[in-house]
Amino acid sequence: MSQDLFPADSAATPPEDGSRRSFIKQAGGILGLALAPPLLSQAERLTAFSKTVEGVTSMTLKVNGTARTLQAEPRVSLLDALRENLDLTGTKKGCDHGQCGACTVLVDGKRINSCLTLAVMNQGKEITTIEGLAKGEELHPMQAAFLKHDGFQCGYCTPGQIMSGVACVQEGHAKTDDQTREWMSGNLCRCGAYPNIVAAVREVAGKA
């Protein structure tokens, strides 16, 4: 019987390549804002896309300020499109069912689980992944706070935690430790780094 609300056994196993290192490397991604072509408005989206899409088709996603075109079927989740098609592997797949938060990204500034939405539905929206947080070599304050407070062990949940932490502070939901715990509860950590994660998010909230 399938386990509810608990990732299946292998689900959250950390990758063997040492995700801390790749996390820091990916954090250095460059923002390509200036190069991005103008984006479609909602009305343009409607006329341009109000037709049935079938099989592998071309779609455009605006990720970290850059419009990127990919070929995929409509059934491809935003998570798989980011990881498999756009090679943005910072966003992790834990459960693939909305139960762990490893896949958290921001869409139009709001945190969501990228495993439970389709890539094709997210055209014309601003998508921000962990790769889009740093400015050049300068880490985002939330990334720096996670390093300072040791907000991780294996690091597998960390990109999701950081994205969620950024949104949590922006929403104004990190005013106390208790509030932070509740509003960060959509991100599970199998290593149990919770106290340090709360410390990191609280520090950024305090400075905000």
Binding site: G98, E171, W183, S185, G186
Partner: peptide
């Protein structure tokens, strides 16, 4: 209900 992420969706 659910989580902040799911509630946004």
């Amino acid at each position: 209900s659910a989580s902040p992420q799911l509630r946004n969706m």
